[in-house]
Amino acid sequence: MMNPDAVEEKQEEGNVLIWLTGFALLVAMIGIFIYVPTERTEGVIQRIMYFHVPCAWLSFFAFFVVFICSILFLWKKDREWDIYAHASAGIGVVFCSLVLITGPIWARPIWGAWWVWDARLTSTLILWLIYVAYLMLRAQSDAGSMRARYAAVLGIVGFLNIPFIHFSVLWWRTFHPQPKVITNEGIGKGMDSSMLATLGLSLCAFTLLYFLLMGERVRQEKLKDEIDRLKREKLYSS
């Protein structure tokens, strides 16, 4: 049982994070819609990049967290890591879906097609499918050690697949814009400094959002566990 003081302290921490995230997102929005100049060739649609790239970053980060937590779970067999992996996979899938939605919106006016079978599009789609399967596996099995172990194995197997997907679709075909932020000439040379600043700000705001969502999801899962425990307790005591 948590003591009431700890709960209150936790909630206060959560409140700080909410305000911080809200503020960062607000500043990022101002940056994206007001401060940053419009791109010369692509026009106003290019502003979607400030959502597209952070979403992609966030989903990859979330899947990486799933991988780490899965390993830690199989090692320590602690329910805590299972909760973290589950929460992170859910957030990752949501943001991966956003990448797959914002991408075509950006691609339509620039490439003239909603979807092309480019390397990074293809690998993002496959990644999305892997983690949707991960969530389905969790939904299919009953709560307990079996579900956690199976999900952890899939979390590891799925993440190790990423380098293979990367190279196979890269050799298959590619036309995505080459990375602009980190190029051969050094970090940040391929982009205007105001754009880079806005992108950085947006990345920070989204990363904060990840931690906020993560905290909420973990809290929900723990409450669910607590309810299950109480139910069982009452059921057998009466």
């Binding site: 496959i126 499918l129 892997i130 399967a133 389905m136 596996l137 299919q140 899939l154 197997v157 799925g158 697949n161 293979f164 997907i165 190279f167 196979s168 679709v169 298959w172």
Partner: peptide, 17 residues
């Protein structure tokens, strides 16, 4: 139902290869 859903996305690299 679950086996192909779990298996096929992970097999994509080797299938392309």
């Amino acid at each position: 139902i679950m086996l192909p859903i779990l298996l096929y996305p992970l097999l994509v690299p080797i299938v392309i290869g």
